[in-house]
Simulated scan of single mutants.
Amino acid sequence: MIHAPPPARGDRDMLVATYNVHRGRPPAGLFRPEGIARVIAEIRPDLIALQEAQHYLRPDAPMLDEELLAREAGLRPLRLPDRPREQGWRSNIVLVRRDATVLRPPVGLRIGGMEPRGAIMAELDLGWGPFRLIATHLSLGAARRVRQGQALLAAMEAGAGAGLPTVLVGDFNEWRAGGSVLGVLRPAFGTPPAVATFPAFRPFLALDRIMTHPAGLAAAVAAHDTPLARRASDHLPLTARVSLRGR
């Protein structure tokens, strides 16, 4: 792996990614979280949200090597102030540039569901201006996803950063363009591009999404499809360029 600083901002847009890392396991194989770190280093995002990145029953047992991520990708975990021993919240982890400015500390959102699902919401500035981030992993059941989508909208509307653009990312477990939660979110976020990310070895389901409010701030939405990414997890990472210019 190449030791290098993150790419300079210059005139480019913010590179955002979301990645279900399958608890650090390949589609078929043993626990190998170093493979996840190498995929993240390939992407070199300014921000990446991870799902299934903590053990549900042992949240204070870190899965990711933070020194490796800092050295190879220039990223650090965005920790919740009330959970300093944990890298994230309910299996969600957000990694941001080391020089990111946290405008409002991240909070963990309880969004319901039989599985221990949740979301992380924070207000950040990574050098392109302030925005609100919501990173989540939604349930398998369609009815639960509808309620979770409603909970995310309520949290966004109740947030202190009124008027901030919002970037919503994660594994939605929804592949239908107007189905369940995507229909709930459409009035605020529009219809995001459907890019197949699952299963990693031959993707045909668009389970992962990058959405913005106002709609249309995300461009060049694509799966990060490399030999390493196909081996590291059962999902491919999803990436997008998010433009906050003039906002």
Rank of each mutant, 00 (worst) to 15 (best):
D225W: 07
A196F: 11
L95K: 01
D60P: 08
G74K: 03
D225A: 04
V21S: 03
H55A: 13
D13G: 14
P81F: 05
P26Q: 08
R12K: 04
F201C: 09
T136R: 01
G108K: 09
A154C: 02
V39I: 09
P105Q: 06
M1P: 06
R79H: 15
R117H: 04
L124C: 03
R79D: 06
A28K: 10
A222D: 08
L138H: 01
G141L: 12
I2C: 07
M63C: 03
R9D: 06
L205R: 13
A143V: 07
R245Q: 15
F31L: 11
R71D: 14
P62N: 05
G159E: 05
Y56E: 14
M63A: 04
V242S: 08
I40Q: 14
A151I: 01
V94M: 07
H55Y: 13
W175R: 03
A160N: 15
I36F: 14
L207N: 00
L185V: 14
I93P: 08
M211G: 00
A142Y: 08
R97Y: 11
R98H: 11
E174P: 04
G190Q: 03
V16L: 13
R12W: 10
F31V: 05
V16D: 12
L95H: 02
L244P: 04
R132C: 13
V16Q: 11
A135S: 02
A158L: 12
G163K: 02
A177M: 10
L75Y: 03
A196R: 07
L164E: 15
R97M: 09
L138R: 00
L103C: 12
I40F: 13
L153W: 11
S243N: 08
R9C: 15
T166M: 14
M156H: 03
P192Y: 00
H3N: 05
A61D: 10
A41M: 12
L109R: 01
D46E: 14
H137F: 04
V39H: 08
I40L: 14
I36R: 02
F189L: 06
H224K: 12
P237E: 01
A188Y: 15
L78W: 10
L244M: 02
M1C: 06
R98G: 10
R83N: 15
A206I: 00
L50G: 00
D82L: 15
P105L: 06
Y19D: 00
G88N: 08
P237C: 01
